[in-house]
Amino acid sequence: MDTLQVLMEWSPWLLQGTIYTLGLVLLSLALGLAFGLPMALGQVYGSRPARYCIGAYVWFFRGLPVLVLLFLFYFGIFPSLNLDIPVFFIGVVVLGLRGAAYQAEIFRGAIQSIPDGQMLAARSLGMSQWQAIGSVILPQALLIALPGWSNEYPEVLTETSVCYAIGVLELLTRASQIVAETYIAMPIYVSVAILYILLNYAGMQALHGLERRVMVPGFAQVTS
């Protein structure tokens, strides 16, 4: 019964960690979207220098291990800028900027998969290039990208655990603190695993729900 008591006692601490983890996921996905979508448009429609810069960005952020990026920002970039921001936000920035590189590639592929005829038809009606992108290309690209984009959620969710390394008080950090305090390891880590799975399940349900809501005939349908 000792174990159960310990779990009960520490459960608020773990739940707070869950909220931190969820916050890391949602904020870094949002940051990734805010940067990734414009980068994808730049990759497809931008000038040569713009495409080159975006390509370099994607190459950099996809080419380094998350942990290395995290240390670079934690020990290097933020201190050198004299920015004293909470480690939580360092985690959000690193996961978000890295996610932006992946999301840019997802959206670029979706945009490029749209037949040229869609742009031609839009332009033939008198739309400017940006009107055509906004009214015709982007809405279709988002529908095409959604199933692939949904992969980013479990990807980033599991990635958040590296924030342990810089002491963000997310799920894994708090769990290891409890273990250090109580010397009970397995039940704690099993609880952590269950919480990750629940977060994953809830997020995927929400994304599938979104897919069902927005999909139209002719675009990929959710199976199940």
Binding site: L120, A121, S124, G126
Partner: peptide, 23 residues
């Protein structure tokens, strides 16, 4: 130049492959 967008409105085009906006 940019006036082309206004001029294209006055020249309707129908394509071999329809090119309806699928969404």
């Amino acid at each position: 130049g940019p006036r082309i967008n206004e001029l294209r409105q006055r020249m309707g085009m129908v394509f071999q492959n329809f090119n309806l906006f699928d969404h």
